[in-house]
Protein backbone atom coordinates (compact mmCIF):
# COMPACT_ATOMS: atom_id res chain seq x y z
CA UNK A 1 0.00 0.00 0.00
CA UNK A 2 2.56 2.54 1.12
CA UNK A 3 5.00 2.00 -1.72
CA UNK A 4 2.15 2.28 -4.20
CA UNK A 5 1.23 5.73 -2.83
CA UNK A 6 4.80 6.91 -3.13
CA UNK A 7 4.97 5.95 -6.79
CA UNK A 8 1.69 7.71 -7.63
CA UNK A 9 3.03 10.88 -6.03
CA UNK A 10 6.32 10.68 -7.89
CA UNK A 11 5.04 9.74 -11.33
CA UNK A 12 4.95 12.83 -13.56
CA UNK A 13 1.54 13.03 -15.30
CA UNK A 14 1.41 13.02 -19.07
CA UNK A 15 1.32 16.57 -20.58
CA UNK A 16 -2.18 17.63 -21.71
CA UNK A 17 -2.76 17.42 -25.44
CA UNK A 18 -6.42 18.37 -25.78
CA UNK A 19 -8.21 19.47 -28.96
CA UNK A 20 -8.69 23.26 -28.63
CA UNK A 21 -12.17 24.80 -28.76
CA UNK A 22 -12.96 26.10 -32.25
CA UNK A 23 -14.00 29.75 -32.68
CA UNK A 24 -15.88 29.94 -36.00
CA UNK A 25 -17.26 33.37 -34.99
CA UNK A 26 -13.77 34.83 -35.11
CA UNK A 27 -13.27 33.83 -38.73
CA UNK A 28 -16.60 35.36 -39.72
CA UNK A 29 -15.61 38.63 -37.99
CA UNK A 30 -12.24 38.69 -39.73
CA UNK A 31 -13.91 38.17 -43.11
CA UNK A 32 -16.43 40.99 -42.55
CA UNK A 33 -13.71 43.40 -41.39
CA UNK A 34 -11.52 42.53 -44.37
CA UNK A 35 -14.33 43.41 -46.78
CA UNK A 36 -14.97 46.72 -44.98
CA UNK A 37 -11.27 47.60 -45.04
CA UNK A 38 -11.08 46.87 -48.76
CA UNK A 39 -14.07 49.13 -49.39
CA UNK A 40 -12.41 51.93 -47.41
CA UNK A 41 -9.15 51.63 -49.34
CA UNK A 42 -11.13 51.57 -52.58
CA UNK A 43 -12.70 54.94 -51.73
CA UNK A 44 -9.34 56.42 -50.71
CA UNK A 45 -7.71 55.42 -53.96
CA UNK A 46 -10.46 55.92 -56.49
CA UNK A 47 -12.46 58.93 -55.25
CA UNK A 48 -11.07 62.08 -56.90
CA UNK A 49 -12.33 64.29 -54.07
CA UNK A 50 -9.31 63.23 -52.02
CA UNK A 51 -6.94 64.75 -54.56
CA UNK A 52 -3.89 63.25 -52.87
CA UNK A 53 -1.25 64.87 -55.03
CA UNK A 54 -2.70 68.34 -54.32
CA UNK A 55 -2.79 67.60 -50.60
CA UNK A 56 0.81 66.38 -50.43
CA UNK A 57 1.91 69.38 -52.47
CA UNK A 58 0.25 71.88 -50.09
CA UNK A 59 0.59 70.36 -46.65
CA UNK A 60 4.32 71.03 -46.28
CA UNK A 61 4.25 74.65 -47.50
CA UNK A 62 6.16 77.15 -45.27
CA UNK A 63 3.07 79.03 -43.90
CA UNK A 64 1.59 75.72 -42.82
CA UNK A 65 4.81 74.56 -41.18
CA UNK A 66 5.11 77.93 -39.44
CA UNK A 67 1.53 77.63 -38.23
CA UNK A 68 2.30 74.15 -36.95
CA UNK A 69 5.43 75.25 -35.08
CA UNK A 70 4.03 78.45 -33.59
CA UNK A 71 0.27 78.10 -33.39
CA UNK A 72 0.20 74.41 -32.46
CA UNK A 73 3.46 73.31 -30.84
CA UNK A 74 4.59 76.57 -29.20
CA UNK A 75 1.02 77.38 -28.18
CA UNK A 76 0.54 73.95 -26.60
CA UNK A 77 3.79 74.25 -24.65
CA UNK A 78 3.13 77.84 -23.49
CA UNK A 79 -0.50 77.23 -22.55
CA UNK A 80 0.44 74.09 -20.60
CA UNK A 81 3.32 75.81 -18.76
CA UNK A 82 1.11 78.71 -17.68
CA UNK A 83 -1.84 76.38 -17.05
CA UNK A 84 0.15 74.06 -14.78
CA UNK A 85 1.76 76.90 -12.82
CA UNK A 86 -1.52 78.74 -12.32
CA UNK A 87 -3.30 75.45 -11.65
CA UNK A 88 -0.94 74.68 -8.75
CA UNK A 89 -1.64 78.13 -7.30
CA UNK A 90 -5.42 77.71 -7.63
CA UNK A 91 -5.25 74.20 -6.12
CA UNK A 92 -3.30 75.46 -3.11
CA UNK A 93 -5.78 78.32 -2.69
CA UNK A 94 -8.61 75.81 -2.87
CA UNK A 95 -7.05 73.80 -0.01
CA UNK A 96 -6.22 76.87 2.07
CA UNK A 97 -7.68 77.62 5.50
CA UNK A 98 -8.62 81.09 4.31
CA UNK A 99 -12.30 81.03 3.24
CA UNK A 100 -11.86 83.99 0.87
CA UNK A 101 -9.01 82.31 -1.04
CA UNK A 102 -11.04 79.09 -1.10
CA UNK A 103 -14.06 80.93 -2.49
CA UNK A 104 -12.08 82.73 -5.18
CA UNK A 105 -10.45 79.46 -6.26
CA UNK A 106 -13.84 77.74 -6.40
CA UNK A 107 -15.31 80.59 -8.46
CA UNK A 108 -12.36 80.43 -10.84
CA UNK A 109 -12.63 76.69 -11.51
CA UNK A 110 -16.41 76.92 -11.73
CA UNK A 111 -16.29 79.65 -14.39
CA UNK A 112 -13.55 78.21 -16.56
CA UNK A 113 -14.90 74.67 -16.45
CA UNK A 114 -18.48 75.71 -17.12
CA UNK A 115 -17.82 77.81 -20.26
CA UNK A 116 -16.83 75.75 -23.33
CA UNK A 117 -13.33 76.45 -24.61
CA UNK A 118 -14.59 77.38 -28.04
CA UNK A 119 -16.88 80.06 -26.59
CA UNK A 120 -14.15 81.25 -24.24
CA UNK A 121 -11.74 81.70 -27.15
CA UNK A 122 -14.31 83.61 -29.17
CA UNK A 123 -14.81 85.93 -26.18
CA UNK A 124 -11.08 86.47 -25.67
CA UNK A 125 -10.65 87.13 -29.36
CA UNK A 126 -13.15 89.96 -29.19
CA UNK A 127 -12.24 91.40 -25.82
CA UNK A 128 -10.80 94.43 -27.60
CA UNK A 129 -14.41 95.55 -28.13
CA UNK A 130 -14.73 96.02 -24.37
CA UNK A 131 -11.70 98.26 -23.98
CA UNK A 132 -9.61 99.93 -26.59
CA UNK A 133 -7.01 100.37 -23.86
CA UNK A 134 -6.24 98.06 -20.97
CA UNK A 135 -5.48 100.12 -17.89
CA UNK A 136 -4.69 99.38 -14.29
CA UNK A 137 -5.70 101.78 -11.55
CA UNK A 138 -8.36 102.54 -8.95
CA UNK A 139 -11.65 100.86 -9.91
CA UNK A 140 -14.78 103.05 -10.32
CA UNK A 141 -12.54 106.15 -10.23
CA UNK A 142 -14.82 108.34 -12.37
CA UNK A 143 -17.91 107.34 -10.40
CA UNK A 144 -16.15 107.92 -7.06
CA UNK A 145 -14.99 111.31 -8.34
CA UNK A 146 -18.57 112.32 -9.09
CA UNK A 147 -19.54 111.32 -5.57
CA UNK A 148 -17.06 113.92 -4.28
CA UNK A 149 -17.99 116.48 -6.93
CA UNK A 150 -14.90 116.01 -9.11
CA UNK A 151 -15.63 115.74 -12.79
CA UNK A 152 -14.06 112.98 -14.82
CA UNK A 153 -11.56 111.84 -12.17
CA UNK A 154 -9.02 109.40 -13.60
CA UNK A 155 -6.77 107.41 -11.33
CA UNK A 156 -4.95 105.19 -13.83
CA UNK A 157 -1.49 103.87 -13.09
CA UNK A 158 -0.45 102.46 -16.45
CA UNK A 159 -2.06 101.04 -19.56
CA UNK A 160 -1.57 99.62 -23.02
CA UNK A 161 -3.47 99.73 -26.23
CA UNK A 162 -5.31 96.41 -26.27
CA UNK A 163 -4.37 95.93 -29.90
CA UNK A 164 -0.70 95.93 -28.85
CA UNK A 165 -0.88 93.18 -26.27
CA UNK A 166 -4.02 91.28 -27.16
CA UNK A 167 -2.81 90.08 -30.52
CA UNK A 168 -4.57 86.98 -31.72
CA UNK A 169 -1.78 84.84 -30.35
CA UNK A 170 -1.88 86.43 -26.89
CA UNK A 171 -5.67 86.32 -26.69
CA UNK A 172 -5.64 82.66 -27.70
CA UNK A 173 -2.87 81.85 -25.26
CA UNK A 174 -4.71 83.61 -22.45
CA UNK A 175 -7.95 81.77 -23.21
CA UNK A 176 -6.33 78.33 -23.39
CA UNK A 177 -4.01 78.85 -20.40
CA UNK A 178 -6.69 80.22 -18.08
CA UNK A 179 -9.05 77.41 -18.98
CA UNK A 180 -6.31 74.81 -18.60
CA UNK A 181 -5.45 76.18 -15.15
CA UNK A 182 -8.97 75.32 -13.99
CA UNK A 183 -8.61 71.67 -15.05
CA UNK A 184 -5.05 71.44 -13.73
CA UNK A 185 -6.20 72.87 -10.40
CA UNK A 186 -8.60 69.94 -10.01
CA UNK A 187 -5.88 67.44 -10.93
CA UNK A 188 -3.32 69.00 -8.58
CA UNK A 189 -5.89 69.14 -5.79
CA UNK A 190 -6.64 65.43 -6.22
CA UNK A 191 -2.89 64.77 -6.23
CA UNK A 192 -2.30 66.71 -3.01
CA UNK A 193 -5.22 65.00 -1.32
CA UNK A 194 -3.86 61.60 -2.31
CA UNK A 195 -0.78 62.10 -0.11
CA UNK A 196 -1.01 60.45 3.32
CA UNK A 197 -1.91 63.11 5.94
CA UNK A 198 0.77 61.53 8.15
CA UNK A 199 3.34 63.11 5.81
CA UNK A 200 2.05 66.60 6.56
CA UNK A 201 2.01 65.84 10.28
CA UNK A 202 5.57 64.56 10.26
CA UNK A 203 6.72 67.66 8.35
CA UNK A 204 4.84 69.96 10.74
CA UNK A 205 6.25 68.16 13.76
CA UNK A 206 9.74 68.88 12.39
CA UNK A 207 8.88 72.59 12.32
CA UNK A 208 8.44 73.00 8.55
CA UNK A 209 6.38 75.91 7.30
CA UNK A 210 3.40 75.33 5.04
CA UNK A 211 5.39 76.37 1.98
CA UNK A 212 8.27 74.08 2.86
CA UNK A 213 6.09 71.06 3.48
CA UNK A 214 4.25 71.60 0.20
CA UNK A 215 7.43 72.06 -1.82
CA UNK A 216 9.58 69.44 -0.17
CA UNK A 217 7.16 66.77 1.02
CA UNK A 218 3.65 66.89 -0.43
CA UNK A 219 4.07 68.01 -4.06
CA UNK A 220 6.90 65.57 -4.89
CA UNK A 221 4.66 62.72 -3.71
CA UNK A 222 1.57 64.13 -5.41
CA UNK A 223 3.45 63.99 -8.75
CA UNK A 224 2.71 60.27 -9.04
CA UNK A 225 -0.97 61.12 -9.26
CA UNK A 226 -0.62 64.44 -11.09
CA UNK A 227 1.67 63.51 -13.98
CA UNK A 228 -0.37 60.87 -15.87
CA UNK A 229 -3.52 63.04 -16.25
CA UNK A 230 -1.31 66.02 -17.10
CA UNK A 231 -0.12 63.97 -20.09
CA UNK A 232 -3.76 63.61 -21.15
CA UNK A 233 -4.29 67.32 -20.69
CA UNK A 234 -1.33 68.03 -22.97
CA UNK A 235 -2.78 65.82 -25.70
CA UNK A 236 -6.19 67.47 -25.32
CA UNK A 237 -4.50 70.89 -25.44
CA UNK A 238 -2.66 70.05 -28.64
CA UNK A 239 -5.96 69.14 -30.29
CA UNK A 240 -7.70 72.19 -28.84
CA UNK A 241 -5.24 74.57 -30.48
CA UNK A 242 -7.36 73.96 -33.59
CA UNK A 243 -10.10 75.97 -31.81
CA UNK A 244 -7.89 79.05 -32.19
CA UNK A 245 -9.54 79.39 -35.60
CA UNK A 246 -12.33 81.17 -33.73
CA UNK A 247 -10.13 83.81 -32.01
CA UNK A 248 -8.82 84.01 -34.75
CA UNK A 249 -5.14 83.16 -34.63
CA UNK A 250 -3.79 83.13 -38.17
CA UNK A 251 -0.36 81.59 -37.49
CA UNK A 252 -1.86 78.22 -36.63
CA UNK A 253 -2.00 74.87 -38.42
CA UNK A 254 -5.75 74.43 -38.85
CA UNK A 255 -6.31 78.09 -39.74
CA UNK A 256 -3.73 77.82 -42.51
CA UNK A 257 -5.02 74.50 -43.88
CA UNK A 258 -8.59 75.82 -43.77
CA UNK A 259 -7.53 79.00 -45.57
CA UNK A 260 -5.73 77.11 -48.34
CA UNK A 261 -8.75 74.84 -48.74
CA UNK A 262 -11.18 77.74 -49.05
CA UNK A 263 -8.94 79.73 -51.39
CA UNK A 264 -8.43 76.81 -53.78
CA UNK A 265 -11.90 75.25 -53.41
CA UNK A 266 -10.15 72.06 -52.28
CA UNK A 267 -11.50 71.98 -48.72
CA UNK A 268 -11.71 68.23 -48.30
CA UNK A 269 -8.06 67.39 -49.08
CA UNK A 270 -6.90 70.09 -46.67
CA UNK A 271 -9.11 68.70 -43.89
CA UNK A 272 -7.62 65.27 -44.54
CA UNK A 273 -4.19 66.94 -44.27
CA UNK A 274 -5.31 68.37 -40.91
CA UNK A 275 -6.29 64.87 -39.72
CA UNK A 276 -2.92 63.50 -40.77
CA UNK A 277 -0.97 66.30 -39.09
CA UNK A 278 -2.89 65.95 -35.79
CA UNK A 279 -2.58 62.15 -35.95
CA UNK A 280 1.17 62.56 -36.36
CA UNK A 281 1.57 65.09 -33.52
CA UNK A 282 -0.66 63.32 -30.99
CA UNK A 283 1.00 59.98 -31.79
CA UNK A 284 4.32 61.44 -30.66
CA UNK A 285 2.70 62.55 -27.40
CA UNK A 286 0.95 59.18 -26.98
CA UNK A 287 4.31 57.39 -27.17
CA UNK A 288 5.66 59.73 -24.49
CA UNK A 289 2.57 59.13 -22.41
CA UNK A 290 2.92 55.36 -22.69
CA UNK A 291 6.32 55.56 -21.02
CA UNK A 292 5.12 58.07 -18.40
CA UNK A 293 2.19 55.84 -17.54
CA UNK A 294 4.36 52.77 -17.33
CA UNK A 295 6.70 54.62 -15.01
CA UNK A 296 4.10 56.23 -12.76
CA UNK A 297 1.60 53.35 -12.93
CA UNK A 298 4.09 51.10 -11.11
CA UNK A 299 2.64 49.60 -7.98
CA UNK A 300 -0.89 50.74 -8.86
CA UNK A 301 -2.11 47.22 -9.70
CA UNK A 302 -4.49 46.38 -12.57
CA UNK A 303 -7.40 48.42 -11.14
CA UNK A 304 -5.26 51.55 -10.83
CA UNK A 305 -3.91 51.11 -14.34
CA UNK A 306 -7.45 50.73 -15.67
CA UNK A 307 -8.41 53.99 -13.96
CA UNK A 308 -5.48 55.71 -15.65
CA UNK A 309 -6.64 54.32 -18.98
CA UNK A 310 -10.19 55.59 -18.38
CA UNK A 311 -8.77 59.07 -17.95
CA UNK A 312 -6.99 58.71 -21.28
CA UNK A 313 -10.25 57.85 -22.98
CA UNK A 314 -11.94 60.80 -21.30
CA UNK A 315 -9.17 63.04 -22.62
CA UNK A 316 -9.69 61.86 -26.16
CA UNK A 317 -13.42 62.39 -26.03
CA UNK A 318 -13.00 65.78 -24.45
CA UNK A 319 -11.32 67.13 -27.59
CA UNK A 320 -13.65 70.12 -27.40
CA UNK A 321 -12.15 71.33 -24.15
CA UNK A 322 -10.23 69.40 -21.51
CA UNK A 323 -11.82 66.73 -19.39
CA UNK A 324 -13.31 66.65 -15.96
CA UNK A 325 -11.87 66.16 -12.53
CA UNK A 326 -9.98 63.14 -11.39
CA UNK A 327 -11.96 60.82 -9.11
Amino acid sequence: MESEEVTTVRARPEPIRAVPVRHPGRWVTVAVLAVLAAMFVHVLVTNDAFNWSFMVDKMFRPPIIEGLLRGTVLMTVSAMVIGVALGVVVAIMRLSDNPILRGVAWLYTWFFRAVPRLVLLAVFGNIGILWSRIEFGVPFDTQLGQLFGIDNLQLRLFGFSSRDILTGFMAGLLGLALSEAAYMAEIVRAGIQSVDPGQTEAAQALGMSRGQLLRRVVLPQAMRVIIPPTGNETIAMLKDTSLLLYVPVSVELFFQLDAVGKRTFQIFPMYVAACLWYLFLTSILLVGQYFLERHFGKGYGPAGRARLRLRTIAAEQGGGGGQGAVG
Binding site: G198, Q199, E201, A202, A205
Partner: peptide, 11 residues
Protein backbone atom coordinates in the same frame (compact mmCIF):
# COMPACT_ATOMS: atom_id res chain seq x y z
CA UNK B 1 7.83 63.28 17.52
CA UNK B 2 7.83 59.64 16.51
CA UNK B 3 4.68 58.19 14.99
CA UNK B 4 3.13 54.75 15.09
CA UNK B 5 3.28 54.51 11.29
CA UNK B 6 6.79 56.05 10.99
CA UNK B 7 5.73 58.68 8.41
CA UNK B 8 9.14 58.77 6.79
CA UNK B 9 9.32 60.76 3.55
CA UNK B 10 9.19 57.95 0.96
CA UNK B 11 10.85 59.95 -1.82
Amino acid sequence: MVFQRFNLFPH
